[in-house]
Design a protein around this nucleic acid. Structure first.
Ligand SMILES: NC(=O)c1ccc[n+]([C@@H]2O[C@H](COP(=O)([O-])OP(=O)(O)OC[C@H]3O[C@@H](n4cnc5c(N)ncnc54)[C@H](O)[C@@H]3O)[C@@H](O)[C@H]2O)c1
Ligand SMILES: NC(=O)c1ccc[n+]([C@@H]2O[C@H](COP(=O)([O-])OP(=O)(O)OC[C@H]3O[C@@H](n4cnc5c(N)ncnc54)[C@H](O)[C@@H]3O)[C@@H](O)[C@H]2O)c1
Lengths: 216, 216
DNA sequence: CATAGTTTGTTATGCAATTCACAACGTTAC
DNA sequence: GTAACGTTGTGAATTGCATAACAAACTATG
């Protein structure tokens, strides 16, 4: 259970990707996979794959590669808790609804999106894809009762900070922020920003000058 | 027009963020802004801000900071073309519709989302927020005619690669990929991946172990 | 059993990006 | 005018990350 050493967010992101590749039919014939195979599918180098796996207490055998099942399990157990962490989403608008739909149908992650929140009365009280939308006043209670540790923010930019404050107050320690603002949070809280406009402007820039190959 | 030197995607992303901050009421009273103010709002260090700006042929004056208007213009002109690049979106599903709505209403970028594509007949032919949804057969023609250089992929994962191929064939040189696969593209094409599941799993991981502070 | 051929685990190397530190400069106060 | 303060611009130091490289290990084969 104890983490071997501090790993970077980028490393965790790659492990998450390897995990998905392993669970979606890689090496399904042999039951085994080489580092360079995973590398090609993940868009990274083979050395990178081996190095990432090294940090997990590895399991590969030379000349045969990795056991798909075993490696998948190790990665999943490293990234996730046995029960799967519980997630809440705030702001059931266009983007919020898309994410809600995705995580109840399309996604295979161990994470569970178990509650949604909104201010609009036509949203609250309803149940979308098995996930109830609560009014904001119930946030603190629901997050504690449901043991929620992660929040997704899909509210308008001008209320994103207060939404983050409310989530943190209620006990959330990780936030995926889809609003285009940099949140101010205490050091113990981890934030990732998912800013579509910035990503798109970056793509547009390199669509012209075309040099580097990168990712996020 | 000529770029001073090769800059990293992360640098461009930060410049994009500074640009937005400058255009949304930073230092609106004085008309000027300090590097440490931008830094706090962007969630980076003051030295980082100054260094990023340095690469643009800078304009700040000691003790007074930067002229908001001037710096904003310089950043915009560096990141964008004068006319604004044109963008197409493929896959008008839950996520695709949310993005379409956002870029016709909520966003202030110079980029223009001017065309959408889908296979489903109930999507094609309709006009959403001033953006027509075409059938896939018209892609090549429309992209050339409309001078589109950037594509957004919001189709299911199993058709993302063929969608990318089609976009590239039609002349697109930058792709924002929202499907959870690593696309194989020629070196001249620039790809950014926007993988919500990976981002969320990364947040969940550090919501427990809580160490680093990072971003993407 | 020995030999050839691959792939892993890991260490060393190189590179890029961020931070540090400070001189130069402008501004303000008196 | 001049002294004191605060910020910029930028070379140097540092950190972190990815690539390269290679010894050890395993399989296969005759
Ligand atoms: N839709 C996109 O593709 C897209 C792209 C980039 C960024 N974003 C950002 O994501 C966020 C949401 O975008 P959207 O298109 O879904 O907007 P939206 O207007 O469709 O949805 C916003 C939702 O938040 C709710 N809300 C408003 N104030 C609230 C509050 N104080 N507490 C709780 N809920 C509140 C509203 O009732 C609404 O349901 C915005 O910050 C937007 O900038 C969206
Ligand atoms: N919705 C989310 O929040 C979310 C989160 C993470 C990842 N994603 C990814 O984004 C993509 C889209 O997700 P979604 O929820 O919008 O799915 P969706 O099923 O709602 O939309 C998919 C759209 O693509 C169209 N399509 C199907 N095949 C096509 C083809 N060959 N060419 C052109 N169009 C085609 C469909 O008609 C549909 O309109 C998926 O790859 C999904 O994994 C979505």
């Amino acid at each position: 259970m104890s983490r071997r050493q501090a790993v970077s967010p980028k490393c965790i992101s790659r492990l998450s990707l390897y995990g998905r590749l392993l669970s979606t039919g890689v090496g399904s014939t042999s039951g085994r996979v080489y580092s360079h195979e995973l590398a090609r599918l993940a868009g990274v180098s083979a050395a990178q794959v081996r190095r990432d796996i090294m940090g997990l207490g590895c399991s590969g055998t030379p000349n045969t590669g990795y056991d798909v099942q075993a490696l998948g399990s190790i990665i999943t157990e490293y990234i996730h808790t046995p029960e799967g962490q519980r997630v809440a989403l705030v702001g059931v608008g266009n983007l919020g609804k898309a994410i809600l739909t995705y995580f109840s149908h399309g996604s295979k992650t161990r994470l569970r999106l178990v509650a949604a929140f909104d201010t609009a009365r036509d949203k609250t009280g309803r149940v979308l894809h098995g996930c109830r939308c609560h009014p904001m006043e119930e946030m603190s209670d629901v997050i504690r009762r449901e043991n929620i540790t992660v929040g997704i923010i899909t509210v308008p930019a001008d209320v994103a900070q207060q939404t983050a404050d409310a989530l943190i107050n209620a006990g959330v320690t990780g936030i995926l922020n889809c609003a285009p603002v940099a949140l101010q949070v205490p050091a113990r809280v981890y934030v990732e920003n998912l800013d579509i406009t910035i990503k798109l402007e970056t793509v547009a820039f390199f669509a012209r000058s075309g040099r580097p190959q990168a990712d996020g």
